[in-house]
């Protein structure tokens, strides 16, 4: 399966999500760092924007009610799984 466009949008999410993860770990041991805190919040905003846009096109990214079921059927079991996507 060629998932070119989907993989491209997913890559932007992976990059933003990685930044958020990295800042999260850093803030765990540097909770007073105001610059890191501001970067984390900004990254969060960007990440959410990309996630909502992706979900409109390809279905939910998160299970258990953290993502909307934007389509009129249960797309969770239909869109490709992480190990099936060809990047």
């Amino acid at each position: 399966m060629d998932n070119g466009k989907q993989a491209q949008l997913l890559l932007q999410i992976q990059q933003l999500s990685f930044m958020a993860t990295e800042l999260n770990l850093y803030l765990d041991t540097h909770p007073q760092d105001q610059r890191a805190l501001a970067m984390f919040n900004q990254t969060h905003q960007e990440l959410m924007r990309h996630v909502r846009n992706y979900e409109q096109l390809y279905g939910p990214l998160l299970g258990y009610g953290y993502s909307p079921a934007a389509q009129n059927y249960w797309k969770w079991v239909d869109s490709p799984w992480p190990w099936e996507i060809n990047y």
């Binding site: 993989a7 999410i13 992976q14 990214l61 998160l62 299970g63 258990y64 799984w81 996507i85 990047y87």
Partner: peptide, 13 residues
Amino acid sequence: WVYEKKLQIPVRV
């Protein structure tokens, strides 16, 4: 834990 339907990074071979 909540499952996120993505890998942390793209995996290609």
